Measured scan of single mutants.
Amino acid sequence: MALNTPQITPTKKITVRAIGEELPRGDYQRCPQCDMLFSLPEINSHQSAYCPRCQAKIRDGRDWSLTRLAAMAFTMLLLMPFAWGEPLLHIWLLGIRIDANVMQGIWQMTKQGDAITGSMVFFCVIGAPLILVTSIAYLWFGNRLGMNLRPVLLMLERLKEWVMLDIYLVGIGVASIKVQDYAHIQAGVGLFSFVALVILTTVTLSHLNVEELWERFYPQRPATRRDEKLRVCLGCHFTGYPDQRGRCPRCHIPLRLRRRHSLQKCWAALLASIVLLLPANLLPISIIYLNGGRQEDTILSGIMSLASSNIAVAGIVFIASILVPFTKVIVMFTLLLSIHFKCQQGLRTRILLLRMVTWIGRWSMLDLFVISLTMSLINRDQILAFTMGPAAFYFGAAVILTILAVEWLDSRLLWDAHESGNARFDD
């Protein structure tokens, strides 16, 4: 018995066209964080690309023209004298008006014999932002004059995390709450300039795509075929072959399989920071003279006294001054041990922890910024005066060393310790 099946006739004509040209192939790229070699397709503007294995951002879609970056830099340069030299806060102490600005706080630190601690604050609040705007201006002028731009481009990517104007702005709020127990506070004209400078700096850093600047100024022929001998440069993120001198053909720094002496430098910085954190938390970090009496505060006791007036601000200072430094030390110690013992479990967790400490590390400088600003506000000789204690130097040095330890660690070593050939990683 035959089955009668109805015929289905399409209502619209289906047209099949042959592909007349070869589909576009992607360029081969190595991930600078996990060293995976993959094919990167062509990316349009405002599109980002991520590593298929570790999800690290390979290409950032946010990109401004150099002219727009230069305009932002010149605007920031105009704001800087007002943000640093004009009063941020006014207080009335014992019937006398006192003005506080950024430069005055750094000068008070240096004047009291601790120039190293003052230079830490100076670099993060004044030096690094000033280098940022002058570097962008150098790129703008240098591109037109045919100057060598490689050193500036190499420095810009590392400079971003040292620009800490946003953290200093939080420190202004913390210092205001600490001082309000002794005097009446009012915002100064410099505060508005400083807030504007923070906003412009944040926007500029978020749109400063150094890798795209490398592509514009020093374009290189990408690798179009897969080759395990391809290496990625950690300076400019170019994937290719080393030249005859073993250097990256684009930025001219040595092109090595792994960062040289990464573990040794990381261990040295980490152990030194552990040693410095002990006096930083045991010795007094601030000293207040009130009517001839002397009151010393460690980091913890200062947080407890701050909690009596504002528990939320005390929580912020606790996280930045105690929780973050010790968390960074514990995480980095764990990561280094996992590399030495070739741990194969929990790779995803370790990668996330490394990215976390990379982002939060700079916030530990908050305590030094609060001390710097408070020193310029309260300084009335023996009637009422505020000065920093010996722990300030140890704390600042420990924070900087932990930042350097994270920067010096080559994250690809975590993958080397893991089993080879993993296309995915999980716990």
Rank of each mutant, 00 (worst) to 15 (best):
G20C: 07
K13N: 08
V317Y: 02
I116S: 06
A2C: 09
W415M: 10
D181C: 01
R355K: 14
P87W: 05
Y50P: 01
D227L: 14
C34K: 00
A307F: 13
H207M: 14
M80H: 15
F122K: 10
Y168P: 04
K328P: 00
Y182I: 13
G315K: 07
E21N: 07
S45G: 07
W359C: 13
L278D: 04
G105S: 02
L165T: 13
A56K: 10
K229G: 12
T134W: 11
G389C: 01
L263A: 09
G396E: 03
A137M: 11
I403A: 03
L169F: 11
T9L: 06
I177L: 14
I126S: 11
G85Y: 04
I274K: 14
P41V: 07
F326G: 09
S176K: 02
Q7L: 06
R245C: 12
L366M: 08
A18N: 07
L353E: 05
G146R: 08
E22T: 08
V203I: 14
D99H: 09
F122E: 12
Q47N: 05
S273A: 14
L282I: 11
L149K: 15
L159Q: 03
A272I: 03
W359A: 10
V16D: 07
E211N: 14
L337A: 12
A128N: 01
A223Y: 13
T75D: 13
L354V: 14
I126L: 14
H340R: 12
T15M: 09
F194R: 00
S262E: 07
L409S: 04
E215P: 13
G127D: 03
M365P: 00
K328L: 00
L384A: 05
V179K: 01
R226Y: 14
D367E: 01
L409H: 07
L368C: 07
R258W: 07
T204G: 08
E211Q: 13
M147T: 12
V275R: 00
V210N: 15
M388K: 04
H237Q: 13
R59L: 10
D35M: 03
H252P: 03
G389K: 01
R62L: 06
S305Q: 10
A385E: 03
F333L: 11
K342G: 10
K12F: 03
P41M: 07
L335M: 10
C124V: 07
Q55F: 08
Y241Q: 13
R25Y: 07
A392G: 04
Y168W: 10
P222Q: 13
H340F: 10
V275M: 12
A70L: 14
I378K: 00
A320E: 00
I167C: 06
A18G: 07
R53L: 08
L93S: 01
F369P: 00
V189Y: 05
E42L: 05
Y28S: 07
F333W: 11
L263Y: 11
I285G: 01
M120Q: 06
L130E: 08
C54Q: 00
N44E: 08
P151E: 02
A137Q: 07
T75Q: 07
I43Q: 08
R30H: 05
I319M: 14
F82Q: 03
S364M: 00
I330S: 09
A398E: 06
A397H: 04
L283R: 10
F395V: 01
L191V: 10
F395A: 00
V133D: 01
N148G: 11
G190K: 01
V370A: 02
I383P: 00
V170E: 02
E296H: 12
L368D: 01
R250C: 14
E22C: 08
L149H: 04
C248M: 00
P24M: 07
W415Y: 14
R231C: 09
W64I: 13
M120L: 03
L213Q: 11
E419M: 13
R348K: 10
C124W: 01
Q112G: 09
S305A: 12
